[in-house]
Nucleic acid binder design. Structure first.
Lengths: 379, 379
DNA sequence: TAGTGGCGTGAATCTGCTT
DNA sequence: GAAGCAGATTCACGCCACT
């Protein structure tokens, strides 16, 4: 629930500004063609969030070989080639201008980039009147090394989160973020693995898109700054990570994408995605008793999916995991520790050992998932 | 040990470009007054490194004068905001232009900032021709929480490291950084505590400077990108963290600072600082660096006898060591690197790890012989 | 079967000196 | 300035084969 604006207040604000019924929006569709052209077809002040992963303008030189002689598969696609900073700036100003137009007055913008482009993007969006709320650092758990030993390992990317203006309202699910982060305020640096393994879309053994983003990143962005039913637009849709996570989290999505290959892959992918059920989506409300959990990170990382059933050893109680790492059993909700304590009427409860889940026919305490998570995340 | 340019080569390059004797520079001094004016007194191409911690401006207001000396009003409405960005940009362009002038051709620039100003600084320095080498995230171990719970905890600041241009040489102590990081490449995200405790300068219980940077940050910057004796200039000297660490590490320093209170505190502080002794500095610079060793020297020294057979790990190729340090396989000959490269059809090859030899029934890479050689030569 | 080791790979502005 | 050559250079993770 928003600390900055409540859902109720937002709804009123939107009704005042415009009244674009959702039926008029191309929800769940990927608009083909150039993203600026595509966005022109979207009504003014109709979208709650824009998430953009624009080309980075990498300006790579020749080929790069690893110390073992193998070849680095670089981003050489036509869509990342610009003549100059000037032409990249023009392109950036054009799509950011459209993004600002289609966003609701209390909508927000996310952009991700690297040092090649993010300073230009940040300065231009400030010039256009966007108001930066945070810059977020995605610290990659497993970045590519610097093979030649010439610089520091490029181990992070930067996201900018911005509202429509200095005085504009925006939406931040403070409580859900705090729950997700073991009851500590969520910081501006997020440690997440890069996209690989089963999650990485491949066609005949080769990656479909060179820069597919991890779903955990979008999960956190959407959980932090949108509500259920909000409309999220991604002007550089690619293979549809934004759409897939939006659908899972019960958000509406719109994509823009030039390349047919990416559009096809994205639609196929999102088709397979299942929305989480109602109880899993209900995140912790602001002001409620603080759930004392580190559990949220497991949910976010996909180690335990929202909607998973967890139960005590004797199966007296069966609860459901929700998107922010809280548990629900009927009308009772709480952290893994708090709910276990309440149900038993005990003075305290270690949720890690109390709750169990089933995995491949095997019943394990959720602490097992924590161990897996720790193994995966450990620096 | 420089990877990008060796100390010897740099010295030659500098002599060619200009010949500003260090005696003509105000080493170990803080130039009073406006930083742009102060930098104008420094000769062109005379400084090895500029480290800058400029005012972050914007919301702070007041602390910033336009280049023409007029005062910038506090940020209130849209026009003022634009005006504020404009004047901040002018100010930034002015001091960056001077910094570029006084830097040697193989010199480098560091700037630190937050999301309020770093995007403008980054875009402008790119426009001026600086070439970004890395953006570095200083991840604060103990940041101030976001008390209102309206955003993510602002837990990092951003540094930009840039050379004079795309083709310009620069200096990076790769080996020293790797040593500092437990033999793993140093990443672009640095976890360091904020400045506090004994290190924080206080006068009558209150901090002397609001944004004093931790010495560990400067330590890493100077160790990574300067050599002993290099000249480091800090145009926003404040209470002299740059000078203190420079003195400790045996680097020369120059400061610019408007405020007399800061100048006095800085001079007093640096006075107390003691340079590390010769041996400590030598060790740190070289790290565990392996000085370049010609394979021929090993043969010459009898560590590998001519006629010895060397082979790759899978024994696909077996070559013979010749008296001049070259290898021969049938009619093919070449250096340890070149022959390995040709045989594999690879773009490059590190012969030290590719080739192996047998010694007392044990198979070792020829790099092992290099280590023995180094041990023997050191004494 | 659980554990181990080899191999592939990820948004990368990725060499320097001599001829 | 282009070409050629000597020399230096990688971390974490997922998958699969093998023990």
């Amino acid at each position: 629930m928003g600390v900055i604006t409540t859902t109720k207040n937002r709804a009123q604000a939107v009704v005042k500004a415009v009244a674009t019924p959702k039926e008029l929006l191309p929800l769940g569709q990927i608009i083909p063609g150039d993203c600026v052209e595509a966005m022109r077809s979207i009504p003014t002040a109709s979208v709650d969030l824009v998430f953009a992963d624009p080309p980075y303008n990498l300006q790579l030189g020749g080929d790069l070989a690893r110390p073992d002689g193998s070849h680095v598969d670089a981003v050489t696609d036509e869509w990342d080639r610009f003549d100059s900073f000037k032409s990249y700036d023009d392109f950036t100003r054009a799509w950011l201008t459209e993004a600002k137009r289609i966003l609701k007055p209390d909508g927000a913008l996310w952009v991700i980039g690297s040092y090649h482009n993010i300073f230009r993007v940040g300065a231009i969006l400030q010039d256009l009147g966007f108001w930066i709320l945070n810059d977020i650092v995605w610290r990659k758990a497993n970045p590519m090394p610097n093979f030649k030993g010439t610089r520091f390992t490029n181990a992070h990317e930067t996201l900018i989160w911005a509202s429509q203006g200095e005085k504009a309202k925006y939406h931040f699910n403070y409580r859900a973020m705090k729950t997700l982060n073991d009851e500590l305020q969520m910081r501006s640096d997020w440690v997440l693995p890069i996209c690989g393994g089963q999650e990485r879309l491949k066609e005949g053994g080769t990656k479909v898109h060179p820069t597919q983003k991890p779903e955990a990143l979008l999960y956190r962005v959407l959980l932090a700054t949108t509500e259920r039913g909000d409309v999220v637009l991604d002007p550089f849709f690619g293979t549809g990570t934004t759409g897939a996570v939006a659908k899972r989290l019960g958000r509406e999505w719109i994509g823009c994408e030039r390349e047919g290959v990416y559009r096809d892959a994205a639609l196929k992918r999102i088709e397979k995605e299942l929305p989480l059920d109602e109880s899993a989506l209900t995140t912790m409300q602001a002001g409620r008793a603080a759930p004392k959990v580190a559990f949220g990170a497991l949910v976010e990382g996909g180690f335990l999916k929202p909607g998973t059933e967890v139960f005590d050893k004797k199966r007296r109680w069966i609860a459901t995991v929700r998107a922010d790492g809280s548990l629900a059993l009927g009308k009772q909700t709480g952290s893994i520790h708090g709910l276990g304590k309440d149900l038993q009427g005990a003075p305290s409860c270690n949720g890690w050992t109390f709750w169990h889940y089933e995995n491949g026919g095997e019943i394990k305490p959720i602490d097992a998932a924590r161990q897996l998570y720790l193994l995966a995340v450990e620096d």
